[in-house]
């Protein structure tokens, strides 16, 4: 479904991703793990069209998508739940969710979709009229995920969904991601909380200094010496 072919990308002359190739198949859960600054977020941002590639190409459903504008990529069915939530602070939760359905094809079903999302997050329903900035961190993460679902994505990506959340909330967030996966959406996760992530993922890639150093199934990676070294220096 999604393919990175020897992708290099970076900011202002500095190459942060180097020759990265990876693949996500339809219905799969794939994760990218690695230390801070290894290029995880950069890989997602280049996929969303927020930063240009310096070489290589990205394909989605057999068509090249690098070079497209960010909104065109969203129209193809790729949605990112960004790091740190990035909600719209001074508009209501309801409007935040509806913004998720901004793309033309999602608009007409927006109200129906909103109901489905609220089924998934009953707590958010009580908050619909409040500004997003008035919510707790956990609630904001729910809204961010809900907003991502509103676009009826074919591929949903998460950038550090556990960031800044308490352990209990982290477990809840992963339960939700699990249920999204079960409903048939293809998922790509970038996480530093690798314990949770690798248990959930079908496959994973380990990034170090912008390069893929190891890949394999979730369980293989959990026992991999590279993973341990990247996180604990063992």
């Amino acid at each position: 479904m999604l393919k990175f072919n020897n992708v290099s990308a970076g900011y202002g002359g500095a190459e942060i991703l180097r020759n990265v190739s990876l693949e996500v198949k339809e219905g799969e859960v794939v994760t990218i793990v690695g230390a801070n600054g290894a290029g995880k977020t950069t890989s997602l941002r280049s996929l969303c069209g927020l930063i240009p590639l310096t070489s290589g190409s990205i394909e989605f459903q057999g068509q090249q998508i690098n070079g497209l504008q960010p909104h065109e990529i969203v129209d193809r069915g790729i949605t990112l739940v960004p790091e740190g939530r990035q909600l719209f602070p001074f508009i209501t939760v309801r409007d935040n969710l509806l913004m998720g359905a901004y793309k033309k094809t999602a608009r007409k079903d927006a109200e129906k979709r909103l109901e489905e999302v609220l089924e998934l997050f009953p707590r958010v329903r009580e908050r619909l009229g409040q500004y997003a900035s008035q919510l707790s961190g956990g609630e904001q993460q729910m809204v961010a995920i809900g907003r991502g679902l509103m676009s009826q994505p074919k591929l949903l990506m998460f950038d550090e969904p556990s960031l800044g959340l308490s352990p209990l909330l982290v477990s809840q967030v992963f339960d939700i991601i699990r249920s999204i996966v079960q409903s048939g959406t293809t998922v790509l996760i970038v996480e530093q909380n690798i314990g949770h992530t690798l248990r959930l993922a079908d496959r994973g890639y380990v990034l170090e200094n912008g390069e893929v150093v190891v890949d394999g199934t979730g369980e293989q990676l959990l026992d991999d010496p590279h993973v341990k070294r990247a996180y604990l220096g063992l």
């Binding site: 352990p167 982290v170 909380n193 690798i194 314990g195 248990r199 959990l222 996180y231 604990l232």
Partner: peptide, 12 residues
């Protein structure tokens, strides 16, 4: 270990 890897990992 838990802070970095999550609880399940430390039990695993």
């Amino acid at each position: 270990i838990e802070a970095y890897l999550g609880k399940e990992y430390s039990h695993a």
